[in-house]
Design a protein around this nucleic acid. Structure first.
Lengths: 222, 222
DNA sequence: ATATATTTTTAGACAAGACTAAAAATATTT
DNA sequence: AAATATTTTTAGTCTTGTCTAAAAATATAT
């Protein structure tokens, strides 16, 4: 008896889910407000509604955490988002920095059958175009061994499997550097001064990555 | 400078467009209320809002008609609906009676680029899975020569190019009779009593169609 | 052409999701 | 531990889209 939720309710659940991934404990009102780009007062209002619907466990002044139902809903929305992003890139030819906004709308389309068929059509992908894991229908994520590029030593190399930052500007920056999912990155030098790296990408020309960039690249050691 | 509209506003515009297709003149409040499955009072409220935004021309007690902008918006929503229906059937393998509801949601996704790419991906289809014409980006419909099956005489035949009724029950009925878009239908007998037809479908076994069914089948004479 | 019926609009309310400003609770300093 | 700062909640409004009941306009029938 999954109740039908509004887009806004679904987005709040997603925000709590994502905030909780990082902090682990109950999520603050202000944190949610930042995620949702709204006021703390609005968040409090919504927390009461979601608690009433038993989607979250909420205690005044203590923050919120997802109930089992709420968690299921949140992962289902994330699943839909990531499957749609995969569709947009793999089938329609969008670039990875163009798909987030559109998927933000598509993720709220309400049809289990649609998602089942889309998943099949895409060949049951396990990762989306940014390398994020796509949860299965029952909410399980396929985990993988990964580390941050900055943790590699000189002469070590890795395959890019994901990015931590999804901003258009960051992704476009990677495009310009010819860095994409699957690229092989070999560390050649590290500056003692600012930790910037000289790397070669897929056996090609050398490029310089600031530490800020390197910290946002997830690789599998190779 | 196309303003961003709510789903509801878009649905009202679509309703006015469709009602106007039939009646040609300004559309009554009650007619719109029936299309939207809401009260006349709500319609009046919305008419004021849409008139304020210059999407319709509205006169109290006289009804509404679309402005050029309103008409453009309505056709764009219809274009999106029909492209998505085509996607659902051709790519995801849905049956023609399953796609309307899902497309009712998808038609409100807001991205011109998405629709351009989807159109291309589908091979620029001119008709959707029910045989309805898909308007081009500039709002033009591809018309075709067609007539209603009931107008055929004995021994004449036609190719099914569209259906006038989109209800699930009607479409499932056609499925059972093995009638689909492209089927060739040959009239063999007509009952004087109730106008029911004995026809053969694509050179196959004979089936009986009630007049109610025959009136909803659009064919190209063959 | 007057009475009756129908259609449409107005008036007043409500729920959802948001806001601002002020009050209350909790955290952090000194 | 008192004073100050921060966070969170409450109170009161607003907008959107809806509703019902009553009033006004238009259409139909006698």
């Amino acid at each position: 008896m999954t109740q039908r939720l509004t887009h806004t309710e679904e987005n709040y659940l997603k925000a709590i889910y994502k905030a909780n991934e990082k902090t682990k404990s109950a999520v603050n009102t202000n944190t949610i407000a930042a995620y949702m780009n709204t006021s703390a007062a609005s968040v409090t209002d919504m927390m009461k509604k979601l608690a009433n619907k038993e989607l979250i466990i909420y205690e005044r002044y203590k923050g919120a955490r997802l109930s089992p139902t709420g968690s299921k809903t949140a992962t289902s929305v994330i699943r839909k988002h990531r499957l749609w992003e995969t569709f947009l890139v793999q089938k329609l030819g969008f670039s990875w920095e163009e798909v987030h906004e559109i998927a933000e709308e598509l993720e709220h389309i309400n049809s289990d059958e649609l998602i089942t068929k889309l998943d099949e059509y895409l060949g049951f992908p396990k990762y989306d175009p940014h390398g994020d894991p796509i949860p299965s229908a029952d909410g399980k994520f396929m985990l993988r061994e990964q580390m941050i590029l900055s943790q590699l030593n000189i002469a070590e190399s890795g395959i890019l499997v994901g990015v931590k930052n999804h901003e258009t500007s960051f992704l476009s920056h990677l495009n310009k550097l010819n860095i994409a999912l699957g690229s092989s990155i070999l560390i050649k030098e590290r500056s003692d001064f600012d930790k910037s790296l000289k790397v070669s990408v897929s056996e090609g020309a050398d490029v310089v990555l600031t530490d800020m960039v390197a910290k946002n690249l997830l690789i599998r050691k190779s």
